[in-house]
Simulated scan of single mutants.
Amino acid sequence: MTKILINEFKNRLDKFLVEELNKDQEYSRSYIQKLIKDGNILVNGEMQTKSNTNLQVSDKVEINFPEIKKSELKGEKIDLNIVYEDEHLLVINKANNMVVHPGAGNPDGTLVNALLGREEINLSNIGGVERPGIVHRLDKQTTGLVIVAKNDKTHQELSNQLKDHKVYKEYIALVWGNIEEEKGVIDAPIGRHQNDRKKMMVTNKNSKYAKTNFEVLERFENTTLVKCWIETGRTHQIRVHFNFIKFPIVNDPIYGRLSDKTDEFGQMLHAYKLQFIHPIKKEMVKLKTELPKEFLDRIKKEGGAKHEW
């Protein structure tokens, strides 16, 4: 589909498109910026790929909307533990061993497949056809709270909150060793592992800033139960950071102790609490969820008692 608009005032290309296109249909700013970057915008017949291009009065702007790729993903009837839902978003308590979205080696059985298997559900398109609705992710064996957006506006607003560190995410983790400090901060950049591209590591080479805060909840003979909250959202961040300070997460199959006899449940890491401003209602949403039974059983085995943190 092609649409032609005439500019009436001096304006930036991206601002002009946001204002004009949203008169008829809702388009996110990121979608419009991608249209420009991908060469789908012509100004007076010439392709423009910079969002800050200045328009003059009477410039003819031609928008070539690319054909939307149809998802080949299939919905599956998989039970989901939904802790919050309205017409704009939902928050799911992700089960252990569930991958968030399809990828190499995981074509089905994912959270996305489960979402598509629900009747009459709309999901945002910002993440592309393979990741509809997915605002942020958790590792396969990390359990807990995940936000899913039902439309692009909600997705964009939530992504901005994540980028601006306005989404509070709190985790509970059981780590090897006895941490002496009551509280601590792990401030160390994370990048791809130099020898294994599937792993991450603390490094100053091609890395990104990463910061994890933690507080000790209980100490056992060989392990420590900690609460942690992250100020950044790097891949495997908590797992990498605790491995870096020599207190790896119990049962972590990648960053844990080599002597750790890992089982199917995976690492003892749970996304316990979530807090954010609802992108449409502008109200504070505060959610938390109980630890999985296997996690609670391991804490009990270590000598701890069930209680609220």
Rank of each mutant, 00 (worst) to 15 (best):
R131S: 08
L158S: 01
E231N: 02
C228T: 14
A173D: 13
E85M: 11
V202T: 07
V43W: 11
N44K: 01
I36D: 06
A114T: 05
L123A: 05
D297I: 13
I41T: 13
N195V: 12
Q161G: 07
V240W: 14
T224R: 01
Q56H: 13
T223P: 02
I134A: 00
I254S: 00
L42I: 06
E180D: 00
K60E: 15
G144M: 05
V135E: 01
D14N: 08
A188C: 08
K183T: 10
M47I: 15
F295E: 02
K293C: 01
Y272R: 01
I4H: 09
N52T: 03
V146D: 03
S124Y: 07
I63A: 12
I78E: 09
T235A: 12
L123G: 10
I126F: 10
V135H: 01
I179R: 00
K293V: 07
P292N: 14
D260F: 07
S71W: 04
H278S: 07
Q25W: 02
M268K: 14
I4F: 11
K208A: 15
R197I: 05
V185P: 03
L287R: 11
G133Q: 00
S124R: 03
D86W: 02
V185R: 14
K293S: 08
R118N: 06
N113C: 11
Y171D: 07
L73W: 06
F247T: 04
L258V: 14
I186L: 07
Y171M: 06
D196M: 02
P189S: 06
N206K: 04
K150F: 05
D263A: 15
R239N: 10
D79A: 14
T110R: 10
V146Y: 02
K273Y: 10
L217W: 04
K74T: 11
L217K: 04
Q56P: 08
E215D: 04
R239V: 00
M201Q: 07
R298V: 02
N178L: 08
S28K: 13
E85R: 10
I186K: 01
R298I: 09
S30A: 08
E26R: 08
L13T: 13
A210Q: 05
H193P: 04
E264A: 15
D187F: 01
G304P: 12
K10A: 12
F244G: 03
N243R: 15
P253T: 05
H101N: 10
